[in-house]
Computed example of a mutant assay.
Amino acid sequence: MCPDSVRLLNGSSRCSGRLQVKTNPSDQTWSSVCEADLDLQDAQVVCRELGCGAPSVLQGALYGDVHTPRWSPEFQCGGHESALLNCRSSGSARSSCSPGKAAGLTCSEVNEIRLVGGASRCAGSLELKFLGQQRPVDPRFFTLKTAALICEHLNCGSTVSFEPTDVSHQSVWIIHSYYVQSHSDLWNSVTSINSPFSLKLTCSDSVRLLNGSSRCSGRLQVKTNPSDQTWSSVCEADLDLQDAQVVCRELGCGAPSVLQGALYGDVHTPRWSPEFQCGGHESALLDCRSSGSARSSCSPGKAAGLTCSGRRGTAASTPL
């Protein structure tokens, strides 16, 4: 079943994205919603209508912004309604909405993914809550592509490693990764088996490489403030060889071999990180000193792209 009048766009799952509403079903036109016109009670109704769990994040431009939208009216839900259009509304839509204020919404999922027992929220034993049961994941058939999708879903960085670990004989979930092309495919690819093994997955906390040909190459992004979970691009001029050595080490890769702007695509309206000043020996990029202030812009073609040599011996032992 598809909801008639609400949808979430550009999210990492069906339960997250930029909110749009079809306020007049007769003309089949979708309108964006201003963050100021959506409160927690409204978000509860949207999440319920989509068959998701409770709202966890409500923030403007969390999943991209809109420059020339059609705006919906302000909703006035009690929180108990089954659909957003069953709520009262202000009756008239805004003529504009401030930049960065198109409402983005994240609802919890009925099916959940988590990493437990690790040193951070981005590392640990992989567990799925599926069909109401929380179980570990068996390492068989698990691939780098599936690992990358899970790291992205958790808003962590790139995959560092995954490997089997021994557990007591128990029922576990197994992911048939050859069916998985996107996060939405994951839940159709899970079955139950008995296994003495589970899977330990490590994603980086605060760095990731995008659009590369392997997990050790791509356009570099950094989460400089973990509390707001927002990723920033890095200007080529703000990253030198010592910085690159730290990034490659943090991702469980070998030494840097190429550092070049726009090598893996460019960014037109990014949020930029500060200049890093690493000695080259640090274990993580955020352990390095930095300039303290980010650039307001970066020249076209200068978003840092990085290629590290292949995996070190400590990285994933599971065949990719």
Rank of each mutant, 00 (worst) to 15 (best):
T314Q: 08
S214P: 01
R48W: 12
P270Y: 12
L285M: 07
P256W: 05
Y179D: 08
G60I: 09
T307I: 11
C288Y: 07
G64T: 15
F130A: 08
D138P: 00
G53W: 05
C248Q: 01
S217Y: 00
R70Y: 10
C77G: 03
A93W: 07
R14S: 10
A83G: 10
R48S: 14
C107M: 01
G254N: 08
V45W: 12
T314C: 01
E109G: 12
P270R: 13
V234R: 02
L144V: 13
L8E: 00
A36I: 10
S56K: 14
Q41C: 04
T159Y: 00
L9R: 15
S227A: 14
V110E: 01
N155L: 04
F197K: 15
T146S: 11
S299Y: 07
L50D: 07
G310K: 06
P73F: 05
R14Y: 13
T165V: 15
R135P: 07
G305H: 07
D240G: 05
R121P: 00
S26V: 13
G301E: 08
L85G: 01
C122E: 01
N194V: 15
G280Y: 05
G279K: 03
I175K: 02
S89V: 00
H281G: 01
E109Q: 11
S108A: 03
R249Y: 02
Q76Y: 05
L239Y: 09
L259A: 09
S95H: 03
S204V: 13
F276S: 07
A244F: 03
C107L: 04
Q181M: 05
D205S: 15
E109R: 06
G118N: 07
Q28T: 05
C15Q: 07
A148D: 14
F141Q: 08
S189K: 03
E112S: 14
H183P: 06
F276H: 10
G132I: 14
S206P: 03
C151I: 11
P139V: 00
G91S: 06
N24S: 10
R7E: 02
S217I: 09
G218F: 01
S297P: 04
C52Y: 11
N225M: 07
D185A: 09
C216M: 05
S16N: 09
E74N: 05
G79Y: 08
G313E: 08
E127A: 01
S189Y: 01
Y264S: 09
P139A: 00
F162R: 01
A294N: 13
S108N: 06
T29W: 09
E250G: 00
D65M: 11
N24Y: 12
T318M: 06
G218R: 02
G254D: 06
V160F: 02
I193G: 03
V137W: 05
L241I: 04
I193S: 05
T29G: 01
G91C: 04
V45Y: 13
C97H: 01
R249M: 01
K223R: 14
Q221G: 07
A147V: 13
G212L: 08
N155V: 15
T143S: 15
D185L: 03
H169Y: 15
S168P: 02
P274A: 08
E275V: 11
N24I: 13
C107V: 06
L85Y: 02
G254K: 04
S204W: 02
Q221K: 06
L239S: 02
H80L: 09
